[in-house]
């Protein structure tokens, strides 16, 4: 708990620092607008990061195809809506595609490269990403599309900015997911098994943890998270396959903020990244390179994580 509060304080301080530095002299109302706007994008980064971390902890795979899986989900959902399906059915259909794609990779492809080291496994998943991107681009010719949810037209006023329920929904979903997943990791049997796998895979298999079942569950869950993130990206960002596919890179930045481990840190890191990226609009120097924020922050976090360590000695990674 102490640790969570410390991260929260750090994130708030960073955001406030950026707001004061670049936004000095801007009315509080304008600042508020940019902060609220940044929170929505930040929670998208966080959602993607949560999926990546859940999967990485349980299976040791950092999945670069997360964006592509989410993209396939939202394109499928869009297509189902175009075919006249009832909204919720279409969304569930889209999510099902996400779960199916993740399970296919997890059960069919990933086991065959289990002998590779983590970096190679991560890099190879890019192959899956571009294959999915190729199929989707082939099936859906380039034309303007829009994916909407009914919550887009409902709104509340916060800090003078009309905030749609969808934007609130992503922030809320990210928080609920972090709390829910953390609790279930700590209280359920599967959660215990996942944590065991995350700590030491070979020992876990020796003591009889059903690795296959736990991994399948993790892949399915991550597919669901990627799918949901994809739907939200499609709604809040834009419905373009290549854009959503490569959104996985800033999501990795959010995951790094949680050291690929701590879900609350991923959430807070993601939100801070979103807010800072949005606030950089105030700076004439940086506004054209705003999207660099996730990478700079992630690099700083990585450096801070390893401060004081002079050298590495052969470890278990």
């Amino acid at each position: 708990m102490w640790h969570v509060l410390r991260t929260a304080a750090l994130c708030v301080a960073a955001c406030a620092g950026v707001a004061l530095w670049f936004g000095a002299g801007k009315p509080a109302m304008v600042q508020g607008m940019f902060i609220v706007s940044g929170l929505a994008v930040g929670s998208l980064y966080a959602l993607g990061g949560i999926g990546l971390v859940v999967l990485y902890r349980a299976t040791g795979v950092l999945n670069l195809s997360a964006g592509a899986i989410g993209m396939a989900s939202v394109m499928a959902a869009w297509q189902l809506v175009q075919w006249g399906l009832f909204g919720p059915v279409a969304w569930v259909g889209g999510l099902a595609i996400g779960v199916a794609l993740a399970l296919f990779y997890g059960r069919v492809i990933a086991p065959q490269m289990a002998w590779r080291e983590p970096v190679v496994k991560a890099v190879a998943s890019l192959g899956y990403a571009i294959a999915i991107l190729g199929v989707v681009s082939f099936l859906f010719p380039d034309e303007p599309r829009k994916f909407s949810l009914p919550t887009d037209s409902m709104a509340v006023m916060i800090l003078g900015l009309r905030v749609t329920v969808t934007r609130l929904l992503v922030v809320l979903a990210a928080i609920v997911l972090v709390v829910g997943i953390t609790i279930s990791l700590n209280t359920t049997r599967v959660g215990l098994q996942m944590r065991a796998l995350a700590n030491n895979r070979s020992l876990s298999s020796l003591i009889g943890i059903p690795i296959l079942r736990v991994e399948t569950l993790a892949w399915g869950l991550s597919g669901l998270l990627f799918g949901f993130t994809g739907l939200m990206f499609g709604d809040l960002v834009r419905l373009e396959p290549s854009v959503i596919t490569f959104m996985v890179i800033p999501c990795i930045a959010a995951a790094i903020c949680g050291r690929l481990q701590s879900l609350p840190d991923v959430l807070m890191g993601g939100l801070a990244i979103g807010v800072i990226e949005s606030l950089l609009t105030f700076s004439d120097t940086f506004k054209q390179v705003r999207p660099i924020a996730p990478f700079v922050i992630a690099a700083l976090v990585l450096l801070a994580m390893n401060r004081g360590r002079r050298l590495t000695f052969a470890g278990d990674d």
Binding site: G127, Y128, I130, G134
Partner: peptide, 12 residues
């Protein structure tokens, strides 16, 4: 688009 698919599959 299909070359992407071929490429991705061959990589895997």
């Amino acid at each position: 688009d299909l070359s992407l698919v071929i490429f991705g599959a061959a990589l895997l």
